[in-house]
């Protein structure tokens, strides 16, 4: 098994590692870097629990090889709060009760951030379609939609 040296910027920190060619990005994040907020919920790229931002785009990190991320910038849930202040999407999920078991939440929040970057004024339908790559089994999505609306509002005020 060949190994490759990769350099990535994860949540603003430069990280280097020698990784096997076949190592999935999600395993690199969770096991090599020890950032366990990114979760694994399936083996068919269906559930979105492993969603992270790769150069600002939401990707399912179970379907990206670590070597493909070489030279890129990655944001995981651990990188959302800045200087002890929650990101508006984190605040939205808390205030609107957008999470129950919490397992899908990191991926859901990162998909929502990518959505809001593309579309700062989303309708409810936009939000539902924008999150359709992320499965939640607990909430019925009602309060997730509200959480994203909360964050959209807050981000519009901040920007």
């Amino acid at each position: 098994m060949s190994t490759h040296k990769i350099t990535v910027t994860v949540n603003g920190q430069l990280r280097q590692a020698e990784v096997p060619a076949r190592l999935l990005l999600v395993h690199f994040i969770r096991e090599t870097l020890g950032l366990t907020g990114t979760h694994i919920g399936c083996d068919t790229t269906s559930c979105g629990a492993c969603t992270v931002l790769l150069n600002g785009r939401a990707v399912k990190s179970c379907t990206v090889l670590a070597v493909q991320a070489n030279g890129s910038e990655i944001t995981t849930v651990e990188g959302l709060a800045q200087n002890g202040k929650l990101h508006p999407i984190q605040e939205g999920f808390h205030m609107e009760h957008g999470l129950q078991c919490g397992f899908c939440t990191p991926g859901m929040m990162l998909s929502a951030i990518a959505l809001l970057k593309q579309n700062p004024y989303p309708t409810e339908d936009d939000i539902r379609w924008g999150l359709s790559g992320n499965l939640c089994r607990c909430t019925g999505y009602v309060n997730i939609v509200r959480a994203v609306q909360y964050a959209a509002e807050k981000l519009r005020i901040e920007n």
Partner: peptide, 9 residues
């Protein structure tokens, strides 16, 4: 919520 929204579950 605090731990779940910050990836600390």
């Amino acid at each position: 919520d605090a731990r779940f929204i910050q990836g600390k579950g």
